[in-house]
Simulated assay, not measured.
Amino acid sequence: MEKQPQLEQAQGKIMKVRIFFLVFSVLGCPLSSMAYGNIGAEQIKARVSVFMDDYVVKLADDYGNNVRIEYAISHLDTRLAMKDCPQPLEAELNSRNNIGRINIRVSCNEENNWSLYVPVDVDLFRPIVTTIAPIAKGDELTRNELEMREMNISQLNGVYFSAMEAVTGMQAKRSIRADKVVLTNDLEPPLLIKKGEQVQMSARSGGLVVKITGVALMDGHKGQQISVRNNQSKRVVEARVSGPGQVVIQL
């Protein structure tokens, strides 16, 4: 009967030893993980930040100094955990466009080869031509209806103008409302010749220039090729509009 308490004491000691080793092994896992830990969201975001700081400098060089650039890295899941990388993480642009929503590829190219893509929104602001008053279809644009205004060009669909001189004197293809960015699709060269109008036709051959009169068979904007009928021969030829009432025939 006295052996039973001794047996229970011995079993209790064995149980304590087992619990000790179990606790030690559980605590040992986080220590090992910290020493050789996985790469998490914060490390990946930090690498993207370093890349973007250099990328902003490059964008400023490409677009000129008169720009303002902002970027926002998309949220990464805090539970993200990639395998360790013995070398610094690599980052590169992986998008066709260079502003707006872009993707940055972050990768480890060593033994634990992996990669992932981080979306970044890049806003680029610069002064461009906008309207300050409505412009009717067919009207010629003047400085009175225009101003340079800082806009976020990453949100624009179309080709804008960064110089007032490129817009003044052009003609509106459609009505343009006030406070709108002027795009290339909104404009066309001014109408210099109207259908049925008498025009002077010039043809150059070597050092010889021949000038004859004709009739425009269609409206013509500057630089546009139109059909013109020779008043003498009645022959219809193609000529390029060079000025008001002036066309040039290519021989």
Rank of each mutant, 00 (worst) to 15 (best):
P190V: 00
I128R: 07
L187G: 10
V181C: 05
Q232S: 15
E238D: 02
S175A: 11
E140G: 08
L217D: 08
G196Y: 01
S227M: 05
N152P: 13
G158R: 12
A239W: 03
D219W: 00
S227Y: 04
R229A: 08
G214C: 09
V181A: 12
L141A: 06
G158E: 10
A216D: 07
E188Y: 02
K173N: 12
R240C: 01
G214L: 13
Q198I: 09
R177Y: 14
T184A: 07
R240W: 09
R240K: 13
K194H: 10
I193V: 15
A166G: 10
V241I: 12
P189D: 04
S227C: 00
M218Y: 00
G206P: 09
F161P: 02
G214K: 10
G138V: 10
P134T: 07
L187Q: 09
P134E: 00
M218G: 11
K234S: 14
R143D: 15
N230T: 04
L192W: 05
T168K: 12
Q198A: 15
L141T: 02
G206Q: 01
R174Q: 15
I128T: 01
L156P: 02
R143Y: 14
A178R: 13
D139L: 00
I193N: 01
G223Y: 01
V241G: 03
L187R: 03
H221A: 09
P190D: 03
K137P: 03
L191D: 05
T142D: 11
T130M: 03
S233W: 07
M201Y: 12
A239M: 10
P190G: 05
H221K: 09
V209W: 13
R235A: 06
N157P: 09
R149H: 09
Q171W: 10
R143H: 03
T168C: 04
G138D: 15
N152S: 06
G245N: 10
S233T: 15
V215E: 03
G138H: 11
T168A: 13
R204Y: 10
P189K: 04
A239H: 01
G169K: 08
D186N: 11
K234M: 11
K194C: 06
P189C: 03
M170V: 04
E197M: 05
V167Q: 08
N144M: 12
P134C: 09
F161R: 02
M218A: 15
A166C: 05
G223S: 04
